[in-house]
Each structure stands twice: as C-alpha cells, then as structure tokens.
Amino acid sequence: MGFKLLSKLLVYLTASIMAIASPLAFSVDSSGEYPTVSEIPVGEVRLYQIADGVWSHIATQSFDGAVYPSNGLIVRDGDELLLIDTAWGAKNTAALLAEIEKQIGLPVTRAVSTHFHDDRVGGVDVLRAAGVATYASPSTRRLAEVEGNEIPTHSLEGLSSSGDAVRFGPVELFYPGAAHSTDNLIVYVPSASVLYGGCAIYELSRTSAGNVADADLAEWPTSIERIQQHYPEAQFVIPGHGLPGGLDLLKHTTNVVKAHTNRSVVE
C-alpha cells in the first residue's frame, strides 16, 4: 500500500471513529477524501466538511520552486461564519470567499490569524475590503508590521502568557507558548472536538522541520505538551499544512522538532 493511500485511509478511519463516538456532533463529509496538494491548482481553494458547521479550507501556493498546501478553518456561528487564517495570499483568499459563498452561503463576518507569517495573514486586506472584521493577538499584529505583512485590524486580548485561553464565538483560542513562531495560536472547536494546530503542528508525513527561522526550538516541545494537557479530548487535529489526523500529530511534531534540534547540535 502506497504512503499517500495509507495517509488518506488514516484520515478516513479517524473521521469514521469520530462519527461513531459522537453521532450528534459529527456529520463528516462523505463526498470524498481530504484534498491534497496535487489536486488543488494554485489560485483555487477546496472546502472539506469535518463536522456539522465545521470545515477546513485548503489552498496551495508556490514557494521556492515548489507547491505547498495550506489549511485553515471555518466555523459556523449562528447565521454567520468565523474564518481562521487566510488562504495564503490575496488571490487565494478572494477564491476562498467565493467558494464559501458557493458552498455554504453564509457571510464571513470575523477572521482570526493564528500567527504573523504570510500563509496566515496574506489576504487580510481582501477580507477587510469584503467587510470582514480581522483579528490577531497584539504580538501577531506587531510582528506582521515588522515583517511588512498585512496586519489584522483588531487585537485579541488575554493571550499574552503561555497557557492563556479565551473564548471567541464558537471557538476557544489558546496560546501554548512559542513553537513554530513566538505568537502562534491554537484554535479548538469544543462542539466538535476539532483542534486546529496551525503551523505549530505537523502532518504525519512530514519528517523535516522546514521553516524554523522564527521558531523557538527549545520551547516548542513544552508548548505541545500544554496543548495535549489542555485538549486531551480532541479527536480531529488539523495541521497548518497537509493531512489531518488525531492527537498523534502532536507527538510526531515533537519528535521531528527534537530530531532537528539534535542534528543542529551535532553539526
């Protein structure tokens, strides 16, 4: 069995187990497998329904001669939608809004960016022009300005110390501490036991640490421990890039980060 097929099978099995364990909360999309990078042309966006009122959005972007996937989250909030992270750029984010209108038909009224990198804030200006209120932590807003990236308009308070959590509509926002970046936030959907790890969490097929220019490698494993301790009931975990899975993604990420750190020390 090929690795790609095995990865998709694991996603399907995880979703099936969740649907059985929580039949009222989960209505997993039966329309197909989780979209992969090879299936999404740059400039297009796919939506994948995880649970009743919960979707991931998947886009792709060219970077350094390669094409990478990027995940975000959409959560229903009454007759409105909360968006977590842009679709990595203005063109993708405009396509995301169009796809949401086509498939869901509810307005996106608020959006949260989970850290300051372009795959999370690139497209904020498109959201703002569409009347979406954009939010991020003060740290993310400051770092985005320093980096020359787009800056969300509103500040999220109460997320300055490791372990801080605040309720934001249908989700809980959690600051686990520094990891992929010093400002990275985690998003949890309690009604569906869905954990969105953003770039602080890796997919299972990833074996290298990737972009760690703004990471705190020493603190990252401790931050992941905080996530595990705060959300032990999480059933569906979405990484910032690639295929979702279960809580095993947290341990896998820790292993990859520690291996990278150990290699760096040896070198």
Rank of each mutant, 00 (worst) to 15 (best):
residue 257 V to E: 00
residue 90 A to S: 11
residue 170 P to Y: 01
residue 140 T to K: 06
residue 46 R to K: 10
residue 47 L to W: 03
residue 4 K to Y: 09
residue 142 R to I: 13
residue 29 D to E: 10
residue 265 V to W: 11
residue 238 I to F: 05
residue 103 Q to H: 15
residue 263 R to N: 15
residue 187 V to D: 04
residue 147 E to G: 13
residue 97 L to S: 02
residue 143 L to C: 05
residue 203 E to A: 06
residue 107 P to H: 11
residue 255 N to Y: 10
residue 210 G to Q: 06
residue 211 N to W: 03
residue 138 P to I: 08
residue 256 V to L: 15
residue 132 V to E: 03
residue 50 I to Y: 03
residue 223 S to P: 07
residue 244 P to N: 05
residue 205 S to W: 08
residue 49 Q to G: 12
residue 97 L to Y: 02
residue 264 S to E: 11
residue 173 L to M: 07
residue 12 Y to F: 08
residue 248 D to T: 12
residue 151 I to D: 03
residue 75 V to Q: 03
residue 119 D to S: 01
residue 1 M to I: 06
residue 110 R to P: 06
residue 19 A to F: 15
residue 150 E to I: 04
residue 97 L to R: 00
residue 154 H to F: 14
residue 118 D to R: 08
residue 195 L to S: 00
residue 165 A to C: 06
residue 74 I to R: 03
residue 62 S to R: 10
residue 89 G to I: 00
residue 111 A to H: 05
residue 36 T to C: 08
residue 196 Y to I: 02
residue 19 A to T: 15
residue 263 R to D: 15
residue 73 L to K: 01
residue 22 S to C: 09
residue 5 L to A: 15
residue 236 F to Q: 11
residue 259 A to S: 13
residue 206 R to D: 07
residue 139 S to V: 13
residue 233 E to D: 12
residue 251 K to Y: 11
residue 162 S to F: 12
residue 213 A to R: 14
residue 73 L to S: 03
residue 14 T to V: 07
residue 119 D to Q: 01
residue 220 W to P: 01
residue 199 C to Y: 06
residue 248 D to W: 06
residue 114 T to K: 02
residue 137 S to R: 07
residue 7 S to W: 12
residue 15 A to E: 06
residue 248 D to R: 07
residue 35 P to F: 09
residue 49 Q to C: 07
residue 27 S to W: 10
residue 127 L to E: 01
residue 111 A to R: 02
residue 200 A to S: 06
residue 210 G to S: 04
residue 124 V to R: 02
residue 191 S to F: 14
residue 256 V to M: 08
residue 78 G to M: 07
residue 156 L to Q: 04
residue 253 T to S: 07
residue 169 G to C: 06
residue 123 G to E: 04
residue 204 L to W: 09
residue 106 L to D: 07
residue 60 T to A: 12
residue 258 K to E: 14
residue 20 I to S: 08
residue 236 F to A: 10
residue 66 A to T: 12
residue 194 V to N: 01
residue 71 N to W: 04
residue 139 S to A: 13
residue 109 T to H: 12
residue 178 A to F: 07
residue 187 V to I: 09
residue 240 G to E: 05
residue 47 L to R: 04
residue 61 Q to R: 15
residue 152 P to S: 05
residue 18 M to R: 08
residue 236 F to L: 09
residue 223 S to A: 10
residue 206 R to F: 15
residue 9 L to A: 14
residue 214 D to A: 06
residue 2 G to Y: 15
residue 260 H to F: 06
residue 18 M to Q: 15
residue 148 G to F: 06
residue 10 L to R: 10
residue 220 W to Y: 08
residue 202 Y to W: 06
residue 31 S to C: 07
residue 183 D to M: 00
residue 119 D to Y: 03
residue 255 N to L: 10
residue 150 E to K: 06
residue 120 R to A: 09
residue 227 I to L: 08
residue 60 T to I: 13
residue 189 V to F: 04
residue 165 A to V: 12
residue 186 I to S: 04
residue 2 G to P: 14
residue 219 E to V: 08
residue 166 V to G: 05
residue 155 S to P: 13
residue 250 L to I: 08
residue 72 G to K: 03
residue 124 V to M: 10
residue 82 L to N: 05
residue 148 G to V: 05
residue 257 V to W: 04
residue 60 T to N: 12
residue 57 H to P: 02
residue 169 G to A: 06
residue 185 L to I: 12
residue 263 R to K: 15
residue 51 A to M: 07
residue 99 E to N: 12
residue 69 P to Q: 15
residue 219 E to M: 10
residue 197 G to A: 14
residue 103 Q to C: 10
residue 52 D to K: 11
residue 206 R to W: 14
residue 122 G to S: 09
residue 13 L to F: 13
residue 118 D to M: 09
residue 101 E to F: 08
residue 16 S to V: 14
residue 163 G to A: 07
residue 54 V to P: 02
residue 217 L to W: 04
residue 125 D to F: 05
residue 166 V to E: 07
residue 10 L to H: 15
residue 115 H to M: 01
residue 264 S to T: 11
residue 147 E to Q: 14
residue 43 G to W: 04
residue 182 T to D: 14
residue 134 T to H: 03
residue 107 P to Y: 07
residue 43 G to H: 10
residue 117 H to N: 00
residue 196 Y to L: 03
residue 262 N to R: 11
residue 241 H to E: 01
residue 6 L to A: 14
residue 247 L to Y: 15
residue 184 N to I: 05
residue 177 G to T: 00
residue 58 I to G: 04
residue 150 E to G: 05
residue 156 L to N: 02
